[in-house]
Design a binder for these strands. Structure first.
Length: 351
DNA sequence: TATCCACCGGAATTTATGGAAG
DNA sequence: CTTCCATAAATTCCGGTGGATA
C-alpha cells in the first residue's frame, strides 16, 4: 500500500494552507506590505535566519494573502549566482517582461523603472551574495518598488551593503529563528495529514524533529524519506530508524545539487570523491593528469587553476565537499555514496 | 619564534558567446 | 555575412596568509 498519498506535499514549492508557528512573523510582514492593497508603497524588509526555517514560504504565503485582497505587482527572484544585470533581468521576467540575454544593465534599469508604474514588491531570495553587486542600489532607487532580500547572516549582509541601502533596510528587519522540537512536530503532523496514509505517532515525529536542528526543510524531507523507506521495506512508518531517513534525505539533496552543476564541477567532485580527502596540490596534479582524457569530446576545454578553485567553493556551498581553507588543509568529500552520473569514475582512475 | 613559500582570494584583464544593426 | 556591443566565464596578476620547518 502507498504510504505517500500525495507526493506534492513534500515538494520544495509546496505551500501549506496555513503556516504553523509563524503567526507573529506573518502579521509583521503583512503590516509592512499591506499598503500595496490601497495603492501605496510597501516598506522594505530584510528577512533573515538559518536555512530551512521558512523564510521563502513566509513571503509566498504573505503575497498570497495580499493577492486575495487586491491585485499585487510582485516578483520573486532567486539571486544565487546572479550579477547585477541578472537580478534586474529576472525581476523584469517576474513582472511579465522578457528582456533578452544581452541588454545592458543600464537599459534594464530603465525598462524596470518604466514597468514599475504602481507599488511593487520584489522578493530577493538567496540574497547573501547580493551586496557584491549593485543590484540593491539599482532596485531601491526605483520609486514605488519595495525590496525584500532574504539572507542568512543579516549583520554580514548589512555591513557590506552601501550606506544608502543600509539606511533603507535596517529599520525593517524580520528575523526568523529555528523551530523548537514541538513546533517542528506540529509542522510534520500537518504534512503527514496532507500527504501520508497509515499511522505515525507523535513521538516518531518528535524523533525526526529532534534530528533536524530546528530546520523545517530538513525535517520534512526526513519524514518523506522515512515514508519511502517504509514503502520499500513494508515496515510501518514509526519503525523506520530516524538516522536512515535523515541519511536518505541528505543524499537526495546532495544528488540533486550535483546534478544541477555543469561538467567541470563533476570532474573535480569525482576526483575528490575518489580520494576521499585530498590536498589542493595533489588535486591540481591529478586534474592535470586526467584532464586530456576526461575532456576529450567535451564542448568545453579543461579549466585553469583559478577557475577550478572557484568550482570548489561552489561544491562546498552545495554541501558536496568540505573545501580546503588554506594550502595545508584538505578537500573532503561529504558523502562518498553520492556519485556523479555525468563523469565516469573509472575513466578518472585509469590514468 | 622567525622565516619560508604554496596556495588563497580579490581585482583587473582577456576570451567566448549571442542578439542587434548594417 | 560581418560588425558591434553587451554580459558571463575564464585567465592573469598579485598581495596576503598561516601551517611547516629549522
Amino acid at each position: 500500500m502507498d504510504v505517500i498519498t500525495d507526493p506534492q506535499v513534500f515538494d520544495g514549492g509546496y505551500l501549506p494552507r496555513r503556516l504553523e508557528h509563524r503567526n507573529a512573523e506573518l502579521k509583521t510582514l503583512l503590516r509592512r506590505w499591506e499598503a500595496v492593497t490601497w495603492d501605496d508603497e510597501a516598506e522594505h524588509v530584510l528577512i533573515h535566519g538559518p536555512s530551512g526555517v521558512g523564510k521563502t514560504v513566509l513571503t509566498r504565503i504573505a503575497l498570497r494573502r495580499l493577492e486575495r485582497r487586491a491585485t499585487v505587482d510582485r516578483a520573486h527572484v532567486r539571486c544565487l549566482g546572479l550579477s547585477t544585470a541578472g537580478v534586474l533581468r529576472s525581476t523584469l521576467q517576474g513582472l511579465g517582461e522578457s528582456p533578452d540575454e544581452t541588454t545592458p544593465t543600464e537599459d534594464l534599469a530603465v525598462q524596470l523603472r518604466e514597468r514599475v508604474d504602481r507599488p511593487t514588491i520584489v522578493v530577493l531570495d538567496e540574497a547573501d551574495d547580493l551586496p557584491s553587486t549593485d543590484a540593491l542600489s539599482r532596485l531601491t532607487e526605483i520609486p514605488d518598488l519595495s525590496v525584500a532580500p532574504i539572507c542568512h547572516d543579516h549583520e554580514e549582509f548589512l555591513a557590506s551593503v552601501s550606506k544608502h541601502v543600509r539606511e533603507r533596510l535596517q529599520t525593517g528587519q524580520l528575523p526568523l529563528n529555528r523551530y523548537g522540537v514541538d513546533e517542528l512536530a506540529d509542522i510534520l503532523d500537518a504534512r503527514a495529514r496532507a500527504g501520508l496514509s497509515g499511522s505515525w505517532t507523535r513521538s516518531h515525529l518528535e524523533a525526526i524533529a529532534n534530528e533536524s536542528a530546528g530546520r523545517a526543510r530538513r525535517a520534512i524531507q526526513s519524514l518523506r524519506a522515512a515514508a519511502e523507506i517504509s514503502e520499500e521495506r513494508g515496515t510501518s512508518l514509526p519503525d523506520i530508524p530516524v538516522d536512515d531517513a535523515y541519511e536518505r534525505a541528505m543524499g537526495r539533496v546532495r544528488r540533486a545539487n550535483l546534478k544541477s552543476l555543469p561538467f567541470h564541477h563533476h570532474v573535480l567532485y569525482e576526483l575528490i570523491r575518489d580520494a576521499g580527502k585530498i590536498s589542493s596540490g595533489e588535486l591540481y596534479d591529478r586534474y592535470e593528469l586526467v584532464a586530456d582524457d576526461v575532456y576529450r569530446g567535451q564542448p568545453t576545454p579543461p579549466l585553469g587553476e583559478k577557475a577550478r578553485r572557484n568550482k570548489l567553493v561552489k561544491l562546498d556551498e552545495y554541501e558536496l565537499i568540505d573545501c580546503a581553507e588554506n594550502r595545508h588543509d584538505t578537500n573532503v568529500v561529504l558523502d562518498e555514496r553520492v556519485a556523479s552520473d555525468v563523469v565516469k569514475p573509472a575513466r578518472l582512475l585509469a590514468q
